[in-house]
Design a protein around this nucleic acid. Structure first.
Length: 309
DNA sequence: ACGATCGATGGGCTTACCTCA
DNA sequence: CGTGAGGTAAGCCCATCGATC
């Protein structure tokens, strides 16, 4: 039952920008860009235009995917026989009724009525759950049909008329049904993405609030320390890393053994801890990774901050 | 019984093309 | 002949309906 839901492939991750949009959608019509000979001038109904679309957020480098052919059938390419007939009957004629059999358009298009009926009959033919009889019985797509549609959607989330016809033929559905499925799929993907974005922003807000709280507390502590006569004596003992205020080198000084072994960069030959009269200043432990990496506090920064306050 | 899911519909908008003054 | 206005068709998004699970 919920196979379709699980097949959505909408497990959008927040972990990294690269994985935020795992759906690799091909928004560009491959037939218009890869065709060796440009097609004759015709309306390009498959071009995406107007309105900032949700898919604009996708990484452009991930938009074009030359994935494997769909179960042996490239939906970008109509079958040979179909190609010939459709280019005359459909794609080359802007007034074609081939791809418009919806109720909305169908109302205006009298010539399409027969085809509409034919396709309805076709749809009834493959629908084992449908008993017809006038009432709007809901068609339930089979697992295979849904899987193929999903595969196609992963390749390109919009269809040009040829792709739509080819897919409809392959699935034994009406082109309008394929079109509707893609429209609904886009809408639901967008909804999912909106939810994910909302959650992401929520977490950003929480992290920023926490960061703000932490920084305010730090400022208060620094103010208190500045007013204290025993400035450095009140420092909490360093737990992990310390920085020499003179040379600004970091060392692990939780114990003497650790203090003698600098963590990353060895001290210069002329460096000797005993020659420095300052005690090492502890460095705040690294905060959890955030997209807005905080500026590390350095002694000079601290001084400037304290002077301002 | 009820909520979630999903196919289907209709309205509105944009764009491209065609016709005509 | 070029041009702008108006009509038409097509596609898309969006909200919603209604059947189904």
């Amino acid at each position: 039952m919920m196979v379709e839901k699980e097949d959505l492939g909408l497990s959008l991750s927040l972990s990294s920008p690269e994985t935020r949009f795992p759906l690799q959608l091909n928004l560009m019509p491959t037939c218009s860009s890869s065709s060796p000979s440009p097609p004759p001038p015709q309306p390009a109904p498959f071009l995406l235009h107007n309105k900032s679309q949700w898919s604009d957020l996708l990484n452009p480098s991930e938009r074009r995917t030359e994935g494997p052919l769909l179960r042996g059938i490239d939906v970008n390419r109509a079958p040979a026989a179909e190609r010939e007939s459709e280019e005359e009957a459909g794609a080359s004629s802007p007034n074609s009724t081939v791809s418009s059999v919806s109720g909305k358009r169908g109302d205006r298009e009298v010539p399409g009525a027969e085809e509409h009926e034919a396709e309805r009959a076709c749809s009834r033919g493959i629908s084992d759950e449908e008993d017809g009889e006038g009432s709007r019985k809901k068609l339930r797509l089979s697992k295979d049909q849904s899987a193929i549609l999903e595969e196609s959607f992963k390749e390109h989330n919009t269809l040009n008329p040829k792709q739509k016809l080819a897919l409809a033929k392959q699935l034994n559905l009406r082109p309008r049904q394929v079109e509707v499925w893609f429209q609904n799929r886009r809408a639901r993907t967008k909804l999912k993405q909106t939810e994910v974005d909302c959650e992401f922003l929520k977490r950003c807000c929480e992290n920023l609030t926490e960061e703000n709280r932490r920084l305010l507390k730090e400022v208060q502590e620094l103010r208190a320390l500045k007013l204290s006569p025993q400035f450095y004596m009140h420092m909490t003992p360093p737990t992990t890393l310390t920085m020499c205020p003179s040379c600004e080198r970091v060392s692990n000084s939780t114990n003497t053994a650790a203090a003698s072994t600098p963590s990353t960069v060895p001290p210069p030959p002329d460096h000797h801890p005993l020659l420095h009269h300052h005690r090492p200043i502890p460095i705040a432990p690294a905060p959890p990774p955030t997209p807005w990496a905080p500026i590390p506090l350095r002694p000079s920064f601290l001084d400037a901050t304290l002077q301002r306050t």
